[in-house]
């Protein structure tokens, strides 16, 4: 069974982004970029499936600028076998990414696609579900456990009220939640090996996909700042403030 893992290059989760003063977006100049944390978990899960003999090949895919090669090399260092870059300078929104991924699925026939649940830059939480819809596949989002056997995937999902477990008929799309696994660190020898693994590049047009954005960003602003608060001396003062100043208890 071949497994696809789409990975996105995003601003590192430790960076607090700054909104540009002209309101056109956030300032990405000289900002540290990394693989979306949920996608690291997705790669780790796919590699574990391969190590367990369930998967035969793990293919990492990224849609974005040439710089996304770096993200793909990270995926290869964690243990993906090969990588595909769909290279474009356009702002690829979730529907476009889902269409690009569908075109690659149609070409290569994986039985499982594992994505992150959410990219931490656009916070869309859409791509996996959209891909499942376009393929007509079953889906299990927000996975915290995945067991594959006998053409079925039993996936435990983190939902608002707790957990639920679904049994999906394969092929299927799974999106990862934080507690699915703890991704390994890429070792130096594996980072070296990753440099030699195959990385193919396509353009959206090669896949026959129109990636024109459907949403236009009119402006980006900083959210209203909270008024600076105070430090209280002790529990008695805290209680007094909550009762008599804030009047919330």
């Amino acid at each position: 069974m071949k497994v696809f893992v789409p990975v996105k290059r995003v601003v590192d989760y430790n960076v607090k982004v700054r909104v540009k003063s002209d309101g056109t977006g956030v300032d990405l100049a000289n900002v540290k970029m990394s693989m979306n944390p949920f996608d690291e978990i997705a790669i780790e899960e796919a590699v574990r499936l391969k190590e367990a003999g369930v998967a035969t090949e793990v293919v990492a895919i990224s849609c974005g600028t040439a710089a996304s090669q770096e993200t793909l090399r990270t995926a290869l260092a964690i243990g993906a076998d090969r990588a595909i870059l769909v290279e474009t300078d356009a702002d690829v929104q979730p529907l476009a990414v889902a269409k690009l991924l569908k075109a690659l699925v149609d070409k290569e026939g994986p039985q499982l696609v594992i994505l992150g649940k959410q990219a931490i830059d656009d916070d869309s939480n859409q791509t996996g579900q959209m891909l499942a819809a376009l393929l007509g596949w079953s889906q299990a989002t927000f996975a915290s456990k995945v067991v594959i056997a006998g053409g079925k995937a039993a996936v435990t999902r983190e939902v608002d009220g707790g957990l639920e477990t679904l049994e999906l008929t394969m092929p299927a799309v799974v999106t990862t939640d934080l507690r699915l696994n703890e991704p390994r660190y890429a070792t130096l020898p594996n980072i070296m090996k990753a440099k030699k693994k195959p990385l193919d590049t396509f353009k959206p047009a090669d896949l026959g996909v129109d990636v024109a954005p459907r949403l236009t960003t009119l402006k980006v602003v900083e959210p209203a700042k909270r008024q600076a608060g105070i430090k209280v001396a002790d529990v008695a003062q805290l209680l007094d403030k909550l009762k008599n100043e804030a009047k919330v208890i």
Binding site: P94, L95, N125, M130, Q139, F142, L215
Partner: peptide
């Protein structure tokens, strides 16, 4: 934008060939 809405609506959007506006 609950776990159910997030799970279902992007699927609806893709079937309609439209973007979803999240959250």
């Amino acid at each position: 934008s609950t776990s159910q809405g997030k799970n279902t609506m992007p699927r609806v959007a893709a079937l309609l060939d439209v973007a979803q506006i999240s959250d």
